[in-house]
Amino acid sequence: MRRDDRDDPFDDLFREIERMMDEMMEGGTGFDNDQSGFSTDTHVDVHETDDEVRVIADLPGVEKDDISVQCDGEHVTISAHGDTREYDERISLPGAVDPRSGEASYNNGILEITFERTSDSTNIDVE
């Protein structure tokens, strides 16, 4: 049953929330899922602090040696190829990181990658 919102000043907001919830329940993300090798049962989280950015991905069914991780400072690309599954994902990071600071561990199907944040700006000496 739909609520009575004829005179509701928040009608547009509630409709947008309902649209987003419907989209989530249908499995849509608003992004082009065809470019993602991750299935709907794979979960990727990105956590950030003032000092670091951490990416955690569920990669069940693959061996550690079959995982490839690349970072350009703004995105992380994870590729993993197992006997029954194949994953390819490019994840946008919430801020600039030092790609050389990356440390990764893989345990029981969970990949965890940690990067140190870098400053978005640089001091320029005026001569």
Rank of each mutant, 00 (worst) to 15 (best):
G30P: 01
F31I: 12
T29I: 02
E52K: 01
G30M: 02
V97G: 02
P60Y: 12
V44Y: 04
D12M: 10
D72G: 10
A80R: 14
V76C: 02
R90I: 10
C71Q: 02
E16D: 02
M21D: 11
M20P: 09
V46M: 06
S39I: 06
S68T: 15
S105N: 08
E63G: 14
E86Q: 15
R90V: 11
T77E: 03
H75P: 00
F38H: 01
T77L: 01
E89K: 08
D66V: 13
H43G: 04
M25D: 06
M24T: 09
R15G: 03
I67A: 07
D65Q: 15
R85C: 14
G61S: 14
R85Y: 11
K64E: 14
P94H: 00
A104Y: 05
D22I: 03
L59P: 04
T77K: 02
I91D: 01
D66W: 13
R90W: 02
S39R: 11
H81D: 11
D65M: 14
D50V: 10
D98E: 12
I91K: 04
F10A: 09
H81G: 12
G95K: 08
E26W: 03
I91L: 01
K64D: 09
G37D: 07
T49F: 01
D51E: 11
G82V: 14
M21C: 13
T29F: 01
S36E: 10
L93F: 03
R15Q: 06
F10N: 11
V76F: 00
G82H: 10
A104G: 09
I56H: 08
S39D: 02
A80P: 11
G27Y: 04
G73C: 03
V44P: 01
R100N: 12
V69T: 12
A104I: 09
R19L: 07
V69Y: 05
D50E: 06
S68Y: 07
S105A: 08
G95M: 06
F31Y: 10
E48A: 07
S79K: 13
H75E: 00
T42R: 13
I56L: 13
V69Q: 03
V44N: 04
M20I: 14
G30Y: 04
G61K: 15
G102T: 05
D50R: 08
G37T: 09
E26R: 06
I91Q: 04
G102R: 10
D32R: 15
E52R: 06
F31C: 04
I17Y: 00
S105G: 05
P99A: 09
D50H: 10
T84S: 15
D65Y: 15
I56G: 03
P99S: 08
V62R: 13
R54Y: 07
H47R: 07
P60T: 13
S36N: 09
V46K: 07
K64F: 09
E26A: 07
T40A: 09
D88Y: 15
Q70S: 12
